[in-house]
Design a protein around this nucleic acid. Structure first.
Lengths: 337, 337
DNA sequence: CTGAAAGCGCTTACAG
DNA sequence: CTGAAAGCGCTTACAG
């Protein structure tokens, strides 16, 4: 039995055709109950394991979703994965996850791999550096729908699910204003990312709505590494009048910024308030954390992205044309402590 | 081209046989260079994407490793995944990851799924509750090698890679002793886990070697949830003479224990020292953390597990018998601050 | 160097 | 209700 028992073995033993066995195992209505029972009994006894590779091949469907994310050490993405998996499980779909590690070359390689493996659909968080969308372009042609997630591509012809970036940024900034801060800095994300621009815009709008002048010196772009955040913070701290409140693109940046203060301006740690995107599980262990987070509801976003993808997968079958969808998830402010 | 171009389409266009095209694409030595060039050129022009499902089916090999881990929010496992992926990539293998969420029922379902999908090998971290190893038993029979990881099963007939649990526990406990602690508690892992027993043993040995009597009241088992850690800590704090140093099964437990102190005995936070397994990336953000960690080198352990698995996969092909392997990874002590 | 043929394990119209 | 047959896209001995 090393070779694995097949449908044919069962058919032979029971003096049936393979078609009958196949149908019996798949609960086809045309098969009589006694036959079904006999087949299932033997399949059980012989420990029959269906060969999914054969099934996928035959059906040209893999019942598998591909997920491409930058990094699994970022809890935001893990929560999103869990959300997507939940929806996939409901539809009896598998999920395969791959990490791009923020490298567009990896990303391209992974997309190719997913294509070769004929996933039925793809959920993608592009890398922070992804500019060229061509790897994703021909996916539609070969019938693999893609939903982008969290980081919308610049090109609006793709479907995506994203947070209400501008609204969230506005809320976070306003919270800092309401806490009495007048000089509010912004550690913005990589300038090439669309999300960065949106969050910057929300920040500006908040200032404007509260009659605070915009000071370009109070905006520093970082690339999400610790070094670049340290550098940006050192620029702020060199100013004659450094910010007392800082809105960050992402709270991992807030954490790095706080580390910077701990090391270089320990007296300022409790003097500067941070607020940014992302309410992370690890916060509960921290003594020094952002005063507020924009809850991105990544689990729900993951669910939403998967739901949208399944909608496309199903439409794919029926070959109808459809409009591009951009879903925005509402963000709420969470105050810490 | 919606249907996807196949080898047959290419053969037709070039007036060749499918065998020739297949061999050309696979760089078979018997094919002439001009033929190879023509085939590859057209494959490129037509954007040919090999159907891996068909290949896997034909070759009865999926070039895929299955990884089953309890939870991706635990950075220990993520690092291990990354290590395993690195080795897999070298061998041109894919990795599919699934989370059991510490539920043996999920685990069984996932193993079944992996079997149906005919992964070439499996790396598994069993759940903390897994007692019944039967889901893993027939994997060998159907030719799917398994390597267990981090949490060795009780049954020694399985292959596994694990940390030097006893040695690590000894080191951590001795560090606390050398810091001057005489009353050293142990927050041990679930009693049903083999690792818990090994670490408990290391703790006992350290006490003995340093002539400190063993007090059963200083050992509390937790199930890795916050609640159970809080409960265990409250037991300790009720003692007439609570421990001043605590060796924990896992540093996530230390973090929960420190949270407990912050909430209920803020004066004790700096009075009680913790040391435990696991040096985690998130530590860098913490003000209150364990004084020392046992570095489990999870990335390297992941690599090692994958290496071992590939060894088995290759032997599988040659059908030779082999001895069970238990690999122990040396642990080093990392002092914080 | 190239090609004809068999076959991997399954599903699904179609016929009976 | 059951079965014979075709075929999903590929690879690989084998023959020439």
């Amino acid at each position: 039995m090393k070779k694995g028992v097949t449908i044919k073995d069962i058919a032979l033993k029971l003096n049936m055709s393979v078609s009958t066995v196949s149908k019996a195992l798949n609960n086809d209505l045309s098969i009589s109950t006694p036959t079904k029972d006999r087949v299932k009994q033997l399949a059980d006894d012989w420990n029959y394991i269906p060969n999914e590779a054969a099934r996928h091949f035959k059906l040209s469907k893999t019942f598998t979703l591909g997920l491409i994310i930058p990094d699994m050490l970022d809890q935001f993405f893990v929560l999103a994965i869990n959300g997507a998996e939940k929806i996939a499980a409901k539809e009896k779909y598998n999920v395969i996850i791959s990490q791009s590690h923020e490298d567009p070359a990896n990303e391209e390689r992974i997309v190719d791999l997913m294509k070769r493996n004929r996933v039925d659909g793809l959920i993608v968080v592009i890398t922070k550096k992804t500019q060229d969308m061509s790897p994703f372009l021909n996916l539609k042609n070969i019938g693999i729908p893609v939903v982008f997630f969290a980081r919308p591509p610049k090109d609006d012809s793709f479907d995506y699910v994203t947070a209400d970036n501008e609204g969230g940024a506005l809320k976070a900034t306003e919270y800092l204003i309401n806490q009495g801060h007048q000089r509010i800095g912004h550690l913005m994300g990589p300038e090439c990312m669309a999300v960065s621009q949106l969050r910057l815009q929300g920040y500006k709008t908040a200032l404007q709505m509260n009659n605070i002048g915009f000071d370009p010196g109070l905006v520093q772009a970082v690339d999400l590494t610790e070094e670049s955040t340290f550098l940006a913070m050192s620029q702020f701290m060199k100013m004659p009048s450094p910010p007392t409140g800082i809105f960050t693109f992402k709270n991992y940046i807030s954490l790095d910024a706080i580390e910077y203060l701990k090391k270089n301006f320990p007296g300022m740690v409790n003097k500067i308030d941070f607020a940014g995107f992302g309410n992370l599980p690890l916060f509960r262990y921290l003594d020094h954390k952002p005063v507020a987070s924009i809850e991105e509801s990544s689990y729900e976003m993951g669910e939403e992205a998967a739901r949208l993808l399944f909608q496309f997968i199903k439409e794919e079958d029926s070959m109808t044309m459809r409009a591009v969808q951009h879903i925005q998830i509402h963000c709420k402010l969470v105050v810490h402590k």
